[in-house]
Design a protein around this nucleic acid. Structure first.
Lengths: 194, 194
DNA sequence: CGAATTTCCTAAACCAGTTCATTTTTATTT
DNA sequence: AAATAAAAATGAACTGGTTTAGGAAATTCG
């Protein structure tokens, strides 16, 4: 049934009983969004975390000079939100935009507080996936520090080809931390070599 | 007594009973380290997370060209470790070095797994502080993307003057993501202005 | 389908930050 | 207090990546 993917995701980290699962399911809200639609916008408090059932998203910031910087992508079986806005329940600074027509399962922030109390195993689940996100983020920060633009590009293409082939190049460039023009230059260099 | 600061730290996020506190305390190991001593080194699995009672630390990576990149600082009332190495129990990639003679309270990775089972409130504690670290890391990544070297320097001086005045400048430069020489240039620009 | 909009590519001038080489200042050790 | 090592400063030459400005493809949508 429709909640299978998210339940499978949770089962990777904690073993829930059938009872716990039936308690949990009412907190899942399915939502469909069209390409180019926003699920989070600066100025509004981010009210849920979203699990991608189908589709693709990007979370990005627009800086004072109008340039975009992509913080995260999400495709099937990933989560996305403006994390700061969600946990502190303060206005978001990011846009989260659908890159394709998509389907989400959303968990409301307050609902989550409720089931964390009712189902202690979910505390553990949250703890583990947050720890993993943190480890991921640290690797990314280090990669930004230690690698050149071209090395970061290569790394991304190898690790996340599924994403690289699906998102617009300006989004990829702004995730890797350089301009679209430079991305073209890199690609050009590569095709010349081979 | 000596565990007061760390217990106070925990109390900010969860309310433990006296019983829970006495169960917890045996897991805290006090450790003294001298300036320039390492508590984590590349190649060795990071076995504990460390809470700084007194002193200052930095976690850094040495890249393929021999350049250092500082991932984190920690002074009194902060935590430090090689997070990836700790949670996956795999060899560290970072050095964690004492910048002064220091005192730590360490929690062993396996011990932590034990008390997380015995004291469920600690799951919540872990979840919350990990969420906050993640939010902090995301802000840092965005700051690196959107701000110039000088803006990042100003931001750090304003937010963390206690740290800025205590750590060597080469460490600060490598945290902010630019060369020591450039840091000198920035400082020079500033003193000329005033 | 055809028009409009969005995305992608190219090239030259430019600049923020690096590198290299040397000197001065500040800590640390004996 | 002298000797040594570590950290900070300075300046000139350089480079990885940006900016600006344009045109070519590819998508989207009426």
């Amino acid at each position: 049934m429709e909640y299978d993917p998210i339940l499978e995701y949770i089962a990777r980290y904690v073993d829930l009983t059938d009872d716990e699962i039936s308690n949990l399911i009412p907190f899942f809200k399915t939502k469909k969004v069209k390409k180019r639609q926003f699920i989070v916008q600066p100025g509004f408090v981010c009210k849920h975390k979203s699990y991608v059932v189908k589709g693709a998203f990007r979370a990005y910031l627009v800086d004072s000079q109008g340039k975009e910087h992509t913080l995260a992508f999400a495709i099937e079986d990933w989560w996305i939100s403006d994390y700061s806005s969600l946990i502190y329940q303060e206005p978001a600074t990011l846009f989260v935009e659908a890159l394709e027509d998509s389907v989400l399962i959303q968990i409301d922030f307050k609902d989550e507080q409720t089931f964390l109390r009712e189902i202690p195993k979910m505390e553990k689940f949250e703890r583990i996936i947050t720890q993993r996100s943190l480890a991921f983020q640290q690797k990314r920060l280090l990669s930004n520090f230690t690698k050149t633009a071209e090395e970061r590009y290569d790394e991304f293409i190898n690790k996340y080809s599924a994403i690289a082939n699906r998102v617009p190049q300006y989004a990829l460039a702004s995730y890797l931390g350089f301009s679209t023009e430079y991305l073209s230059k890199i690609r050009n260099r590569k095709t010349l070599k081979s």
